[in-house]
Design a protein around this nucleic acid. Structure first.
Length: 213
DNA sequence: AGTGCGATTGACT
DNA sequence: GTCAATCGCACTA
């Protein structure tokens, strides 16, 4: 299947309005925050319109984690991980994909939560334009696809996600179903820690099938 | 200045 | 399911 499937109309009246999450509402622990963010919203206000979606998959990279980008200390490129919780850390990898993280600890401590997959809600046609002919559930399934669908690049690095602006975290439009936990995807170090969180019933979650049950 | 390495994706079997 | 392209960054010299 390489065509865009018909998009079922989204019943917005069955959802709560999305409002910004205040920093005080964000759990102060990386792992707890990663779990907390499943079901919450990501909103991008772009010149072409508003994009939003439900976060359905995250990974925690807590302080001292050898798999985290902050492990070897602060550098110009990973500095945003050391900002007070609720700031964006965007980096580029594999020559092709941007990744979006939410800083997750007090200022000076390097840690973050990687956003891995989103269920698109608003701005689906614009996302589809950016992603090409893929199925709805593939639009923002995967950390690199998510940033591409939302138009997020390095210029978003360091943004405060707790204030209304170009990119922000919002309340849940709809509550999350049961949340599963698994090892994180694609790591060679610290590969056994259960720091990935995902909405079990969601078809918008990435990763191999055995990690989606 | 040169080297090695990914928190992946998309194309292909 | 398998597999290789791709390039910014950290490290070494």
């Amino acid at each position: 299947m390489d065509t865009i499937e018909p998009v079922a109309p989204i019943n917005m009246s069955a959802m709560s309005p999305i409002v910004t999450l205040n920093r005080e509402e964000l759990p102060e622990d990386t792992e707890v925050l990663a779990r907390f963010l499943v079901g919450k919203s990501l909103v991008a206000e772009t010149p072409e319109g508003r994009l939003s979606g439900r976060i359905v998959e995250t990974e925690a990279y807590p302080p001292g984690d050898a798999a985290g980008h902050a492990f070897h200390g602060q550098t110009p490129s990973n500095g945003s991980l050391f900002l007070e919780r609720g700031h964006a850390y965007v980096y580029f990898t594999y020559g092709s994909a941007y990744m979006l993280n939410v800083s997750s600890e007090p200022e000076g401590i390097g840690a973050g939560v990687l956003l891995r997959a989103i269920e698109p809600l608003e701005g689906i046609p614009l996302m589809a334009r950016r992603r090409g002919p893929v199925r709805l559930h593939d639009l923002a399934r995967g950390p690199g696809r998510l940033t591409r669908a939302f138009g997020i690049g390095r210029t978003y690095d360091g943004f405060d996600l707790c204030v209304a602006g170009p990119l922000w975290l919002g309340s849940a439009a709809r509550p999350s179903g049961p949340v599963g936990m698994s090892v994180r995807i694609g790591l060679s170090r610290e590969k056994d820690r259960l720091l990935r969180f995902y909405e079990r019933a969601s078809p918008f979650v990435s990763g191999p099938a055995r990690l989606r049950r």
